[in-house]
């Protein structure tokens, strides 16, 4: 497996780019890239030339997360002011805008079936789930407080939820928190299942393998990438190699490779079978906040965004 640089856009945003996602192709157009930045805008790009297809304003404070519906028509973005905005990708019309009091919103993810939108609920120590047809809040999956602690001491800020991921079948949600624990929920019953331990620093990104529904990859500030069996509660592997926080992880569609972006300014490609890094890209010169494989068929594409305001697109083969 190999990455080859295709195109880079410097100054794609006016400020640090913090979020990236692929908007799946529709009949009318190919898959697009959606990026969110500290400059309070969300922008659309058409690969492989990364042509700017639009700039969406409407957020105050930086855009921390973007997510696209699997059908490719609608997308969601969330900013530091905790507003979630749902909009039509092609027309940029706002479909819905809401927040999740009393807490802020971090990572957003649609479920693979497109029926739900999950958001990492930060200080509320929970994952919020909305129905994508009515945009009503349908569930709040709370991480239970550790036993033994008095409910009075409001120490749950340690379980501050940063990241969220859906299993391919949509039946599990995993979320990563500031203290490094990963919590797994049963979405059907809305129930907390168990914790996955091993990290002791914030887990800013996690993703399920698209081919093995139980396999979960997590990236943490402790510079490691862990592989868990999300059902069996076991840590299958641990991979080190970054010299900085692992800010973002994404698994390739074929399930063979993993890409990570780190504060050490590099993007690494990992061979999941070998549990080892096979390639390091260092074309960014600041933290790499997001990496994303294009869903669907060949040829494989990987995109990354960084604090250096740039977007990079790679060919994955």
């Amino acid at each position: 497996m190999k990455l080859a640089g295709l195109k880079s856009i410097d100054d794609a945003h006016d400020e640090s780019v913090w979020a990236i996602t692929w908007v799946p192709a529709t009949e009318a157009r190919p898959a697009l890239l959606l990026t969110g930045s500290l400059d309070e805008t969300v922008r659309l790009w058409q690969p492989d030339e990364l042509v700017n297809r639009g700039k969406m304003t409407g957020h105050c404070l930086g855009v921390a997360s973007v997510a696209a519906h699997p059908l490719g028509f609608i997308a969601a973005s969330a900013s530091l002011d905790s507003f979630v905005r749902i909009f039509d990708v092609d027309s940029n019309t706002t479909i819905a805008s809401f927040e999740a009091p009393p807490s802020e919103v971090w990572q957003l993810r649609f479920n693979p079936q497109g029926t739900m939108l999950a958001a990492a609920g930060g200080g509320s120590a929970s994952v919020k789930v909305w129905d994508t047809s009515t945009w009503n809040l349908v569930a709040t999956l709370s991480i239970p407080r550790p036993e033994g602690t008095k409910p009075a001491d409001k120490s749950s800020s340690k379980k501050f939820v940063l990241s969220v991921a859906w299993s391919p079948d949509g039946r599990r949600i995993a979320c990563g928190s500031m203290d490094g624990t990963v919590s797994v929920f049963d979405t059907d019953r809305g129930k907390f299942l168990h914790h996955l331990e091993g990290h002791c620093m914030p887990v800013r990104s996690l993703v399920f393998s698209p081919v093995e529904p139980r396999l979960l990859f997590t990236g943490s500030d402790d510079q490691h990438v862990h592989m868990y069996d999300a059902e069996g509660k076991t840590q299958v592997g641990s991979m080190s190699g970054h010299n900085g926080w692992v800010l973002s992880v994404d698994a390739s569609t074929d399930g063979a490779a993993l890409a990570t972006g780190s504060s050490d300014r590099t993007v690494k490609l990992w061979d999941i079978g070998m549990k080892a890094a096979v390639q390091t890209m260092s074309n960014h010169n600041d933290q790499v906040w997001g990496v994303a494989f294009r869903p669907g068929g060949m040829p494989g594409r990987l995109a990354s965004v960084s604090d250096d305001k740039s977007i990079s697109l790679y060919d994955y083969s």
Binding site: L196, E197, G198, K233, T234, Q235, V236, G237
Partner: peptide, 11 residues
């Protein structure tokens, strides 16, 4: 490679 470990032990 280090074998996979039970989650309780992983810490």
């Amino acid at each position: 490679k280090a074998p996979s470990v039970d989650d309780d032990a992983s810490i």
